[in-house]
């Protein structure tokens, strides 16, 4: 199991995957937006998206779990 965590504080601008999707290593999961900067958050390894913990527009802090990959 892999927890995908936010690398910065900001709001969830776009979610680019769905629960149940199988994804590859380095694939974008969500795009966070903060201070005029958009940062894609990527999967560290391949797997299936077990759970998405955020919705578009949500505010996350650095270190918050965004998704769980199995």
């Amino acid at each position: 199991m892999q927890e995908i965590k936010a690398s910065m504080a900001g709001s969830v601008w776009k979610i680019v995957i769905k629960q149940g999707d199988s994804i590859e290593e380095d694939q974008d999961i969500v795009i966070l937006e903060s201070m005029k900067m958009e940062i894609p958050i990527v999967a560290e390894s391949a797997g299936t998206v077990k759970e998405l913990k955020v919705a578009e527009g949500d505010f996350v802090n650095e270190g918050d779990v965004i998704a769980i990959i199995e």
């Binding site: 690398s7 910065m8 504080a9 900001g10 903060s34 201070m35 900067m37 940062i39 650095e62």
Partner: peptide, 9 residues
């Protein structure tokens, strides 16, 4: 962040 340059509000 001084290394990644990611925003830190």
């Amino acid at each position: 962040d001084p290394v990644t340059f990611f925003p830190s509000p």
